[in-house]
Design a binder for these strands. Structure first.
Lengths: 307, 307
DNA sequence: AGTGGGGTATCCGATTTTCTGATGCGGTTG
DNA sequence: CAACCGCATCAGAAAATCGGATACCCCACT
């Protein structure tokens, strides 16, 4: 018939990578083979799927349409395989998860504790990283899922909004701390610790500061959460962090306030490989993560509502 | 990976026929081959899919479960194939076209609708812009062709006259509108909306007004067609627009008259990169654009002849 | 009990498909 | 202009698929 699973899988890789060569690498094949498979599809259907113009290739309308359906085929096949494998004896469950530091700071530990308790023979592997690296891993199918900040390019990914968590103003404990929402513009000259440009939150934070007319006296870039907290704790620098990172004990030594007028929030997004379905164990672990995240975030949202 | 489409298809046949032999017949294969494919699946998954007991075979629970998912795979594959085959007709490739607002207002939509219908697998990219920008793009080879007002400098361009369309006098609907050609000089003091100097038509219009001795009380410069129409519709300002922009519904709310003694027209010119020939798909699209433009323009030329 | 028939598994050579490395071609870059 | 990058194409090698022959099993019938 028209189009084998391998044809489809390679086509999908090419579509997502926008490159025959990169697709070949991802699929452990040669560029030549990939080219032939795509050509097979094209001649079988009598339709060009990619425009080989210039340096880059672009999908044709037919390519776009086929991709959407091709994903369904791969997902269905994946679901079928997983289903039947559940009947096999001695399945060695393993899940690989990518998390941004926001998630690993306070959320991961309690979720993980509950999970290993309930499912002792599932092997859990957690990788910490920033959105770019995690997104790449998801695309390559190296992780079951990842949790990253909301971002633009979702080619090859299945994504859904997981949680919206408030961003909080964090300063060293002053002794005279008033809880409750504050406005950035009211805090006078700010010496602000920001993530670098590789971090998705950087753009959001800068836009926000400009919008509300915050008075930024100085900024430094730190891409380490531990370092940031430590730096803020011992000086007159301040920073802005997602509420998820500030559960319970984590706030001792700091004055923390919600940011209001307008509110500033961070959207966490779940991403999975578009061509795969979530393994049962991974789904359970995700659910636990989500529960913990909501619990932690809810505390601050409540503080926020009371304003 | 585990399980090719052929494996799955043969498995489904066996499941439905409850027989390897009958399945082989149905799929135009040999019993031997069918057996091998099913065994492939079973060894790959490590699960028996059928119980070969007694005279008849029966699916195992795993077989039942796999069957349900397997159908989804085949359906998804079928849907994907059908979807992409719908793009098989017509040309393929990519065309990039630059058009001035005069063309995009009324002409583009019907031509585009006809084109994508007949050639679903051509990726069409239309850029709107004024003559200077479009000319630049043609010179750089970034577009297949562009349609602009007639202009002087044609170095590096292949150009031909596409269409001469009347310029029309446009005012807000007054309730007492007389159709038919008018002379600008007869309309008393004019509050006239003009394009700015970057627009090629500006010079033509100014020269014309001076030539016929029109009484221009005031002018403002608007380089937005949407804005111009809206502004004229709600006040006592008037403007002059190419007939191409005033097809059918577009004239409701306005009093529109051809301009006579002498006539005032706009020449639209097709320009292409001199070093390239027009791609077949681009030629077809151009032809449709030209047809629509002539159709729209013809209505007003007729009104003009009758004078 | 022996035999025949329907049905599946397995083996093996032939065929077909798929993969790979080399090479060519067009476009881009320095 | 040369070097480079990326895709297409080709031919030989490797792998898979296929198809016929055969072995095996269970059951029914004699």
């Amino acid at each position: 018939m028209l189009g084998t699973l391998r044809d489809i899988r390679l086509f999908v890789s090419v579509y997502e990578e926008r490159s025959f060569t990169l697709a070949a690498q991802r699929e452990n094949a040669t560029q030549s083979g990939v080219s032939q498979h795509v050509r097979n599809l094209e001649t079988a259907f009598g339709v060009r799927l990619f425009i080989r113009d210039k340096r880059r290739i672009a999908p044709t309308p037919a390519g776009d349409a086929y991709y959407r359906r091709a994903i369904d085929v791969l997902r269905a096949h994946d679901a079928a395989s997983r289903t039947v494998q559940a009947y096999a004896a001695g399945q060695d469950g393993q899940i690989v998860v990518g998390l941004m530091p926001t998630m690993t700071r306070c959320t991961l530990a309690p979720a993980l504790a509950r999970f290993v308790d309930a499912h002792p023979n599932v092997k859990v592997h957690v990788t910490e990283g920033y959105s770019a690296a995690l997104t790449q891993m998801v695309r390559a199918g190296e992780v079951d899922f990842a949790i990253v900040p909301a971002f633009a390019d979702s080619a090859g990914l299945k994504s859904r909004l997981l949680l919206r968590t408030p961003e909080l103003f964090v300063a060293a404990a002053s002794g005279a701390h008033l809880p409750g929402p504050i406005r950035l513009a009211d805090r006078g000259k700010l010496k602000l610790v920001l993530p670098s440009a590789v971090n998705t939150r950087r753009g959001t934070l800068e836009t926000y500061c400009a919008t509300v007319g915050a008075d930024i006296a100085r900024t430094i870039e730190l891409d380490t959460m531990f370092g940031t907290l430590d730096f803020v704790a011992r000086g007159d620098w301040v920073t802005i962090l997602p509420a998820l990172m500030l559960d319970g004990d984590a706030t001792s030594g700091f004055d923390v306030n919600p940011i209001a007028n307008p509110s500033l929030t961070l959207d966490l997004v779940l991403i999975e490989p578009a061509r795969r379905t979530l393994a049962p164990a991974a789904a359970i672990f995700l659910d636990l993560l989500e529960q913990e995240a909501r619990r932690i975030s809810a505390v601050w949202e409540q503080a926020y509502q009371e304003s």
